[in-house]
């Protein structure tokens, strides 16, 4: 008897906190849960259908350079660099990348003590500007927790927001 074919079978690859993953496996959906004030950066090269997802916790690696060397995904600056480098290994090209950003939840704080979400976002924007990268879609800040899904077959990026029953599309697939 022939083995059954798994049609439409989707591999949900979980990207943990302070981690990243890149793949050209079209059955994969890269997923990262509950961002808090962390930022998810999803990149996708539609020509070679290669996608990557980063779940970065803190803005800048000067906080702990030793940690950054071991776990680059922890920080925006080292994480984004590692994410793009890994995608280039698959033949992705910088200028073809479609970029989506989500997360950076922020409590009601004027003191500046608890503004990690805001600082993460500012660090990311400064980095993108320096490298001439544009963000295609983003949903950041606010009082909610977000979960992000990147479908590698289409490049579609979906969001699940805490307290909302259904997922929404952040960036359409192509």
């Amino acid at each position: 008897m022939p083995s059954p074919q798994l049609v439409g079978f989707e591999h949900r690859v979980i990207v943990g906190i302070a981690d990243l993953a890149v793949t050209n496996n079209r059955s994969a959906t890269l997923t990262t849960y509950s961002l808090g004030s962390c930022l998810a950066v999803a990149i996708y090269d539609p020509v070679i259908r290669c996608g990557g997802l980063l779940h970065a916790m803190l803005p800048d690696s000067s906080i702990d350079p030793v940690k950054a060397a071991k776990q680059p995904g922890m920080f925006i600056e080292t994480g984004v660099a590692a994410l793009f480098r890994a995608a280039y290994q698959f033949g992705a090209e910088k200028m073809r990348m479609r970029i989506a950003v989500a997360g950076g939840g922020q409590i009601m704080d004027n003191s500046g003590f608890f503004n990690i979400g805001k600082r993460n976002y500012e660090a990311l924007m400064a980095l993108f500007q320096k490298h001439g990268l544009r963000v295609a879609a983003e949903q950041v800040g606010g009082l909610v927790n977000r979960t992000v899904y990147l479908n590698v077959a289409s490049g579609e990026v979906r969001l699940k927001v805490s307290g909302q029953a259904s997922e929404t599309v952040l960036l359409c697939g192509i």
Binding site: S37, M57, I116
Partner: peptide
């Protein structure tokens, strides 16, 4: 901040 909050509007 690390995403280990819970509920609808954790922030």
């Amino acid at each position: 901040m690390m995403g280990y909050g819970c509920g609808h509007v954790p922030f």
